[in-house]
Structures are given as structure tokens and as C-alpha cells.
């Protein structure tokens, strides 16, 4: 009975954060439209170029004229999700100036609720374009229900990793906003070397070696591979490094980020509001 009550309270607090975030976001509705269309605009050029390119070449690595839309879809979905990395520190900084952050920090409130509240609100935010795009791609490249469930779970895992990263950046940005921009440069570099919207094989060899060292690449690549191979067992057995990086990051990364958040918050606190 006590356990059930505790679980109910955890859910209630987590969803309270999500509900609040969504309410704030939909206050200015065009903000949501901007968020959905920005990745489309960013990806439009590579889509056109790759489409043209693939007309002449039969394939670039696993990319073919038949399946390259899967790459575009994962690229788009991941690009919307990368906004979680930006959104959490920006939101925390905004709340610092609204003075609502001190109200949250002095409330009996586990930081995990904060993290998962943000994850839920972000998923609600991207639900419409994500689902629409998913349905379109499924029509052209159908997969089994099991593969679809695993792919959705993978996107969820990706969201957890990105949000954890956002929380990590957030704790620094509430004490000094410069941190946010410095870390953001690093994040952009990491994502540049992660093949979100270009095939790995398109890059020259020295860059391929750098990409091979980037864990984000494996996270993105395993989603595409799962879709293309459409056989969970085969994918998981043939790409053990990808799978272990993905599962390990999804489970350990949020714990590390919340731990770091608590340590850094105690040390640096909130300044400048």
C-alpha cells in the first residue's frame, strides 16, 4: 500500500513537471511549429542532394535510392530530439530569471523527476511530427511490429540520453551561462561527427576514424540498422558494440547526469537572478 502510494507520488510529480513544461511551450503556439519545421529545413538540402546523387550511384554503403528515406527519417527524428540538449539548460536558465527555479530547488523534489518530466514533455512536443513521419516511412518501408516497438524504445532511450546531457549542461548554465555555449560548441562537434544525415561511407578515411570513436554515431546507427535488417535477433547479434553502447548509455547516463547535477548544484548553486 505504501509502495503504491509512493509510486503514485513519483508519477504525479514527474507528470507535473511535464504538464507544466507543455503548458509553457504551447503558450506561444508558433514556437512548436518552429521546432518541428527547423529540422525539415535543415534536412531538406541533404535529402535533395542525396536523392540526386543516388540516382547516378546505385548505393553509398547501406544507403540506396530505395531506403535512403529511412536515413532521412532517423536523421529528422534525432535532430528534433537534439533540441532536448538545448531545451533543458535554456529552460532552467529561463526559470532562474523567473525565480521559479529556486522554488523548485527548495521543494521536496528528486532530480530524477525533473529529468523524466522533461523527457515526457519533450516527447509530447515532438509526438505529432515524429508520428507523421514514422507513418509515411512505414508505408514505403514496412517493418514488423516487434521491430517497430524496438525502434520506438530506441528513440525513447535516445531521448533519455539527450535529456541527461541537457540536465548536465543545465546545472552549469544556471551558475554561469557561458558554460552553456562552450559545451554547446562541443555538442555540435560531436554531432557533426555522428552521421545524422550523411552516410558514413561518404566521409574520407581520417574522418571515418574519428566517427568510429564517437559513441553518438553508434546510437544513431543502430536505429537505422534495426530498421534496415528488420530482424531484432540478427541485428543484436551482429552489432554487439552498437547494442552495448546503446543499452549502457540509456541506463547509466541518466544516473550519472543526475548525480553530477546534484554535486555541481551543491558546489555552484544558482547565481545571477
Amino acid at each position: 500500500m505504501i509502495k503504491r502510494d509512493k509510486i503514485r507520488r513519483i508519477f504525479s510529480k514527474t507528470f507535473a513537471i511535464a504538464e507544466k513544461n507543455v503548458s509553457i511551450q504551447i503558450r506561444f503556439k508558433y514556437y512548436m511549429l518552429w521546432r518541428w519545421f527547423l529540422p525539415v529545413i535543415t534536412l531538406l538540402m541533404p535529402i535533395i542532394l542525396l536523392g540526386k546523387f543516388l540516382e547516378y550511384s546505385t548505393s553509398i554503403g547501406p544507403w540506396t535510392p530505395q531506403n535512403y528515406m529511412i536515413f532521412v527519417f532517423t536523421g529528422y527524428s534525432i535532430m528534433i530530439m537534439t533540441s532536448m540538449i538545448d531545451y533543458i539548460p535554456k529552460s532552467l536558465t529561463q526559470e532562474k530569471y523567473w525565480k521559479t527555479l529556486p522554488a523548485l530547488m527548495t521543494a521536496p523534489f528528486n532530480r530524477f523527476y525533473l529529468l523524466f518530466g522533461y523527457i515526457i514533455s519533450e516527447f509530447i512536443g515532438i509526438l505529432i511530427p515524429f508520428s507523421a513521419f514514422l507513418i509515411v516511412i512505414l508505408i514505403f518501408f514496412p517493418i514488423s511490429i516487434l521491430t517497430l516497438i524496438v525502434i520506438i524504445l530506441m528513440f525513447l532511450g535516445m531521448g533519455i540520453i539527450f535529456s541527461g546531457f541537457g540536465l548536465f549542461l543545465g546545472v552549469f548554465s544556471i551558475s554561469n551561462e557561458n558554460f552553456l555555449y562552450v559545451f554547446n560548441i562541443l555538442v555540435r562537434i560531436i554531432f557533426w561527427f555522428s552521421c545524422i544525415s550523411y552516410p558514413f561511407q561518404l566521409f574520407p578515411e581520417p574522418i571515418q576514424s574519428i566517427i568510429n570513436l564517437n559513441p553518438i554515431y553508434y546510437l544513431i546507427d543502430i536505429i537505422r540498422l534495426t530498421w534496415l535488417e528488420n530482424n531484432i535477433i540478427v541485428t543484436f547479434l551482429s552489432h554487439p558494440i552498437h547494442v552495448s553502447i546503446f543499452i549502457g548509455s540509456s541506463l547509466i547516463f541518466p544516473i550519472i547526469c543526475v548525480y553530477v547535477f546534484n554535486i555541481i548544484y551543491k558546489k555552484l548553486g544558482i547565481t545571477g537572478y
Partner: peptide, 21 residues
């Protein structure tokens, strides 16, 4: 004014009620 401006008064109070259980 330690409250959220972009949501209603009721949503503000409801949010903090949930946070405090």
C-alpha cells in the same frame, strides 16, 4: 512573484500542489 507567468494561476497552484504531493 515566484510563479510562472506563461500559465494560469490555477495551473501554477496545481503544479506546486503536485510537486509537494
Amino acid at each position: 512573484d515566484m510563479i510562472y507567468y506563461r500559465i494560469t494561476g490555477y495551473t501554477n497552484l496545481k503544479f506546486f500542489c503536485k510537486v509537494y504531493g
